[in-house]
Amino acid sequence: MRLFTILLLVLSLTEFVQAAEFDHSHQHFDRVLKQYVKNGLVNYAGLKTHPQELNSYLDQLASVPEDEFARWNENQQMAFLINLYNAATLRLIVDHYPVKSIKDIGGVLNGPWKQKVVHLWGETITLDDLEHGILRKRYAEPRVHFALVCAAHGCPPLREEAYTEKKLNEQLDDQGRRFIGNKEKNRVDVSAHVVYLSPIFKWYAQDFEKKGSPVLKWITPFFTKEEQAALTNGGEFKIRYTDYDWSLNDSSVGK
Rank of each mutant, 00 (worst) to 15 (best):
W121D: 01
H26M: 05
V118D: 01
N182D: 14
Q115T: 00
R31P: 14
F22E: 09
L148G: 06
K238W: 09
N55L: 10
F22Q: 11
S101V: 02
I125K: 03
F4I: 13
P214N: 07
C150E: 02
R177E: 09
A162I: 00
A70K: 11
G111E: 01
R178L: 12
L81K: 05
L109A: 09
D174C: 08
L47F: 15
V94E: 03
E227I: 10
L127S: 05
L248P: 08
D95N: 09
Q175Y: 08
Q52V: 14
R178D: 14
V94Q: 05
V42Y: 11
G107I: 03
K185F: 10
A45C: 12
L127W: 05
Q228V: 05
Y196V: 13
K167L: 14
P199V: 01
K137N: 15
K100Q: 15
L158D: 00
P98V: 02
G122L: 04
D250F: 06
R91V: 01
V149Y: 06
D67Y: 11
S101Q: 02
L248W: 05
E170F: 15
S63V: 01
L120R: 03
Y196H: 11
K225C: 08
H132K: 08
E131A: 01
L7V: 06
I105R: 01
L92M: 05
K38E: 15
E74P: 13
T49R: 00
V17S: 14
F222K: 11
I180D: 00
I180H: 01
E15C: 12
Q18A: 11
T89P: 05
R159D: 10
E123T: 09
E131F: 04
D173R: 09
T14A: 06
L109M: 06
R31K: 13
D189I: 03
H24I: 13
E66I: 13
Q206S: 14
H119P: 05
S25V: 09
L81V: 03
K202A: 04
Q171I: 13
Q52K: 14
V99I: 10
K166Y: 15
A162E: 00
V253F: 08
R91K: 11
A230M: 07
I180S: 00
V253I: 14
F222C: 08
A70S: 08
V64Y: 11
